[in-house]
Amino acid sequence: MLSAVNRLTDSDGFRRAVRSGRRSGCSTVVVHLWTDPDAAPGPVRVGFTVSKAVGNAATRNRVKRRLRHLTREHLPALEELPGRAVLVVRALPAAAQAPYAALGTDLARTLGRVSAT
């Protein structure tokens, strides 16, 4: 579970990250990262989007729990970004059948791409 300071709950944050942030994707997830280097440093806020195309409610919740746990492991690296950052992780339909290890590999690869640019 992510701590309360790391949860992205407002729609403006989601919209800003998806429309203005850097994006990287693979077969199971798409990651949007928006950074504001001029803002005071603060915790990275993370939000998740899992549409009905992924599966029924139980499947969507399982995918979201897996992604939340995997993302929590990458938070220390994201905290090193200058300023304030907002991360949105969007699950694609292939995430429902992907094994946990494959989801972790895809998430690490996409996070590496968006945080490097």
Rank of each mutant, 00 (worst) to 15 (best):
T71W: 15
N6K: 08
T35L: 00
A85E: 06
T117I: 05
R109L: 13
P37C: 06
E79Y: 05
E79Q: 09
G25T: 07
T28H: 06
D10W: 08
A39P: 01
V114T: 13
L92R: 01
R109V: 11
D38K: 12
A40G: 14
S115L: 05
K64F: 14
H32T: 03
S27P: 01
H74M: 13
L111K: 01
G112E: 01
N61C: 01
T28W: 02
A116R: 15
S115A: 10
V18I: 14
V89W: 15
V44S: 06
V18S: 09
R68F: 12
A58P: 05
R66G: 01
P99K: 12
V29Q: 04
N61M: 01
T105I: 07
R22Q: 08
Y100L: 11
R7V: 06
L87G: 10
A96D: 00
R113Q: 11
A91R: 00
A77Q: 11
T9P: 00
R19Q: 13
T105D: 11
L107N: 00
V44G: 04
L70K: 12
Q97T: 08
L2V: 02
Q97F: 02
V18F: 13
G13N: 09
L33H: 12
W34E: 04
L2W: 04
G112P: 06
F48K: 03
S27N: 03
H69A: 14
A94Y: 03
L107C: 08
A85G: 06
A98Q: 09
A102E: 09
A108N: 05
L111A: 03
S24Y: 04
L78A: 07
L92E: 01
T49S: 10
G13D: 12
R68K: 15
S24C: 02
R84V: 07
V30T: 15
T110R: 14
D10C: 06
R15Q: 13
A17D: 04
V114Y: 05
T9Y: 03
R15M: 14
V30P: 04
R16S: 15
D12C: 10
T71R: 11
A77P: 02
A53Q: 11
T105P: 09
R68T: 11
L107Y: 02
R15S: 15
L33S: 11
T28G: 03
V50S: 00
E73F: 00
G112L: 06
H69K: 08
A101Q: 06
L87F: 13
S51I: 02
A94N: 05
R113P: 01
V31D: 13
A57K: 01
R113T: 12
L33C: 10
V86G: 14
L87Y: 13
V31I: 07
A17G: 05
P41I: 10
D12M: 13
P43Y: 10
N61P: 00
A108S: 14
A58L: 03
R23E: 10
A96P: 00
R113K: 10
Y100T: 06
P37M: 08
